[in-house]
């Protein structure tokens, strides 16, 4: 029987991964925007990442007609008027700190991503997910499900009204706590631009302890997962405002049909 994994063990591994990445940079290696799928401090990754290198496909591999350079579309039938406001989906208001989260979705050339689906899900203010498998002893909120959807505007903008989620305990190691976060799912015009990620709140004391956030070993890339508090987005007597812009990686659509 192995001894329980402690935060100290995981923090030491996180430090080792950061040192290895710093050395890689110092040796002239390229900066890495995304997590390495083989990031052992996040234990669930160990058996769930490929060990073979990815195979180049699409335009870079001589196939500019790859289907992945186009992508699905969504429209007004896919969202309802209340989907972007997670505080108005039940008979009464949820408990918690009401917040607005807004920003723009851009492609990697800085162009706005228009009319695309943005989906979010999150824990309630007590850190509990409305999911049968989250059974830790924190209260469910009958007035909060924690699911939102919207379409980006002409300038790539999105906006959600919700409550700030609580920190969430998990079983990666003993006394493991996730910093408060909102899960985001995004589409671009090309399937290659698909992104699922998590947004964090500035100044969270749990950042250093969390192997999922720390899996992004590049300091500036990791900062891009943290929203900014924006006082101009706060509404008097009502809600606090956060701004978070999102940049989709991957080649943009090369396949454009007339009238699209």
């Amino acid at each position: 029987m192995s001894t329980p994994l402690t935060q100290g063990d995981v923090s030491a591994e996180i430090a080792d991964e950061r040192a290895a990445y710093a050395k890689r940079l110092a040796d002239g290696g390229a900066a890495r925007d995304h997590p390495d799928r083989a990031y052992a401090p996040y234990r669930s990754s160990v058996l769930r990442h490929p060990k073979r290198p990815l195979v180049a496909a699409g335009a870079a591999a001589g196939d500019p007609e790859a289907v992945e350079l186009s992508g699905p579309v969504f429209g007004v039938t896919d969202v309802t008027a209340l989907d972007h406001d997670l505080t108005r989906q039940h008979r009464a208001e949820p408990l918690g700190e009401r917040i607005k989260v807004t920003g723009r979705v851009l492609d990697r050339a800085g162009r706005p991503v228009r009319g695309q689906l943005v989906e979010i899900w999150q824990a309630n203010a007590s850190g509990r997910y409305a999911h049968q498998r989250d059974d830790h002893p924190a209260p469910l909120d009958p007035n909060f499900t924690g699911v939102g959807r919207t379409l980006t505007g002409e300038d790539g903008s999105y906006e959600f009204v919700t409550i700030k989620p609580g920190a969430y305990p998990w079983r990666n190691h003993v006394n493991a706590w996730r910093p408060a976060h909102i899960h985001f799912s995004l589409f671009g015009p090309a399937f290659t631009q698909r992104l699922v990620t998590q947004m964090y709140f500035p100044g969270d004391p749990l950042f250093a302890y969390d192997p999922i956030l720390q899996s992004v070993t590049d300091d500036s890339a990791r900062q891009r997962l943290i929203a900014a508090y924006d006082h101009d987005l706060s509404t008097p007597e009502w809600s606090l405002g956060y701004r978070w812009d999102i940049v989709l990686d991957g080649p943009a659509a090369t396949w454009i049909e007339e009238g699209r």
Partner: peptide, 12 residues
Amino acid sequence: APGPTPSQTVGP
């Protein structure tokens, strides 16, 4: 544009 937003797991 700033660099791409990193991926994170879809979680459980």
